[in-house]
Nucleic acid binder design. Sequence first.
DNA 1: AGCCAGGCCAAGC
DNA 2: GCTTGGCATGGC
Length: 211
Amino acid sequence: MNKIKEVLQQLQNLYDCKDWWPVHKNTDRFLEVSVGAILTQNTNWSNVEKAINNLIRENLLDWEKLEKVKITKLKECIKPAGFYNQKSIYIKNFVKKVKNLPRENVDRKTLLSIKGIGEETADSILLYGLDRPYFVVDAYTKRLFYRTGITGSVNVPYKKLQNMVMETFPQDTETYKLLHALIVEHCKKYCRKKPVCEECSLKKICKQNLK
DNA sequence: AGCCAGGCCAAGC
DNA sequence: GCTTGGCATGGC
C-alpha cells in the first residue's frame, strides 16, 4: 500500500482544515499572498502578520506604492518579520518584475527568475495567490514525510517531493491547499522539531514508532 | 536564556 | 551538483 496516501488520508480524518492562507479583505489577494510568502521565509507567521499590518496601515500594500516606496521605509514596515534587509529587496524585485505582467503570464519559471523567490515561495504564490495546481513543499512536509517513512531522508530534493504528491493525488488546487494545510496543522501540533509522539494519532503508522 | 519559525542566496568544495 | 554560513525578529 501507498504510504503517502495512508498518512495523508489519516490526516484528513483528523483535521477539519479550511482554505487557510490568511488574507485581509479589500486587498489584492495575489499581491498580499506574494508579499506574505516572501516575508514568511524561515519566519513565524505571527511576525509576518505584524509586518503585513504595518504595510496595510501605511497604505503600502499596493503595486504602485510598493514600487515607489523608499527602501528604508519598506524595511521599517517589515522589520518584525526579520531578515528585513534582504526581504525588502526581494519584494522590490518581485513587484518590479510582475507589476505590469498579465497574470496569465505569471508562471513558475518567471517567479523563479526573481532573486529572492525559490521553489517554495513560487509555489505558494501560484497555489494561494493565483489558484494554480502546484503542491507546496515546506520544512513540515520534509520532516513529516521523513519521520513517517514516506521518504528515506530529510534531504529529498524539492521537486521529487512535489512530484510524489502531484502524481498521487488529483491535480487540483483545492486538493493541494487542503493537503498542505493538513500537514502544517499536524506538524505544528505534533510533528514538531521536538516531536510529541505519545499523543500523535499517526503513532501506529509512523516509522518513529517502530524503533 | 536559548531555541525556534511556512527559505533563499552566495560561496566553497 | 551538494553543503554551509549568513540573514533578524518576537514568542515561548
